[in-house]
Design a protein around this nucleic acid. Structure first.
Length: 368
DNA sequence: CGGCAGCGCAC
DNA sequence: GTGCGC
DNA sequence: GCCG
């Protein structure tokens, strides 16, 4: 009775060493791996591997599907409806496998496949990483190493004087890139806390600058940049050059996350010829974001927090008016651009409170 | 159509 | 309970 | 994907 069980068989004796059918099995195995690691279908994977393994053991190179069906290399192959058989047939007749090529062109497939090669990263983790923009092992490694490298430093909060110093660098860089702009440190710094876990700096040009920019009357070599989208890269370049920014975590179109430290050019007033002293200041988490002037009040409100304060405000806006609130504006229903509320002149945070029929609360009092 | 192995470990 | 590796 |  047990005689037929696989676990009662000796393996097919002389281990055949060479695979004469790699032209078939490579494709099947690739497809299996994608089914398993990317598409979350381990059973499809298993069956593709089953066929691949059987074909690997053949003592001849298969060129026609009949050679695999006659005595079926696996039981399923006997059936005309076997989809694996169909795929093998396609490989044998065309030398290609459409389905596989299609999948291999897919961004997500490529990324998840690479990421799951990391021990501890499975399908779910890889999918999540992909969703947050991490698509390669190198990107993952960079992130991981920064986290480890500064593990102890990230634990420490900075005195607000240090936050102020870093923000000062950002502000000066911003003013050079975009004369007249505002650069405000939000977050717990703006709420007046004596220490800060990280630093959010919001940059926003003046309305006048925007107007001048859009009609091309800037950028004539007076030091500022010519377009809105140049602001962030210009500011970052200067801060990197000064050694204020030491590592990047993510660099987007109008949002930056990275590490900064104060007193990078500590000899600022110390005169020239001073040998640069090892700064050795703690690395701090910093976010820099650029907003259009009309968005600034909302961005300020949003990034000044606290998180709890924000939630309660959003809750009110939704329950009382059916409005949704984010860092860019007030929206009806969901926050798509089309539904942005424009019927009110919102010039500062106070206008937002007023629009929502709430009494103004100063930043220092928002640490609820 | 449901089942396809089931476990220990980390979180 | 979920994700992961085996 | 395949099987019962």
């Amino acid at each position: 009775m047990r005689a037929k069980l696989a676990c009662q068989q000796r393996s097919r004796d002389p281990p055949k060493g060479v695979n004469l059918n790699a032209h078939i099995t490579d494709k099947l195995e690739d497809l299996a791996e994608i089914y398993d690691k990317v598409l979350g279908d381990p059973y499809k994977a298993k069956n593709h591997n089953l066929a691949a393994n059987a074909i690997k053991d053949l003592p001849f190179k298969a060129t026609r599907i009949e050679q695999l069906v006659d005595p079926p290399v696996i039981p399923a192959m006997a059936s005309k409806r076997s989809t694996v058989r169909g795929k093998i047939n396609e490989i044998l007749t065309t030398g290609r496998l459409q389905k596989l090529e299609e999948l291999k062109r897919n961004d997500r497939v490529v990324a998840v496949r690479e990421l799951t090669r990391v021990w501890g990263v499975g399908e779910a983790k890889a999918r999540h990483l992909f969703n947050v923009g991490i698509k390669t092992v190198n990107q993952l490694r960079a992130r991981q190493m920064i986290g480890l490298k500064y593990f102890d430093e990230f634990d420490q909060r900075m005195p607000r004087e240090e936050a102020s110093a870093i923000a000062g660098y950002v502000e000066r860089a911003a003013r050079r890139a975009c004369p007249g702009c505002v650069a405000v440190a939000a977050g717990s710094y703006r709420r007046g806390k004596p220490t800060c876990g990280d630093l959010d700096v919001l940059i926003s040009p003046t309305r006048e600058w925007m107007t001048a920019e859009s009609c091309g009357s800037l950028g004539d070599g007076r030091g500022g940049v010519s377009t809105f989208k140049d602001i962030l890269p210009t500011v970052l370049a200067e801060l990197r050059g000064k050694g204020v920014l030491t590592d990047d975590l993510s660099v987007g179109k109008d949002s930056y996350m990275g590490l900064a430290r104060a007193d990078a050019d500590a000899d600022g007033g110390g005169g020239m010829g001073v040998v640069p002293v090892e700064p050795a200041r703690t690395h701090r988490r910093i976010d820099v974001k650029v907003y259009a002037p009309e968005e600034l009040p909302f961005a300020l409100l949003y990034f000044t927090g606290s998180g709890y304060f924000n939630r309660s405000m959003r809750y009110w806006a939704k329950r009382r008016f059916g409005l949704s609130l984010n860092d860019k504006g007030i929206f009806r229903e969901t926050s798509n651009a089309a539904s942005k509320v424009t019927d009110a002149e919102i010039d500062d945070e106070a206008d937002v409170f007023e629009y929502l029929r709430l009494k103004y609360v100063a930043p220092e009092d928002r640490s609820v």
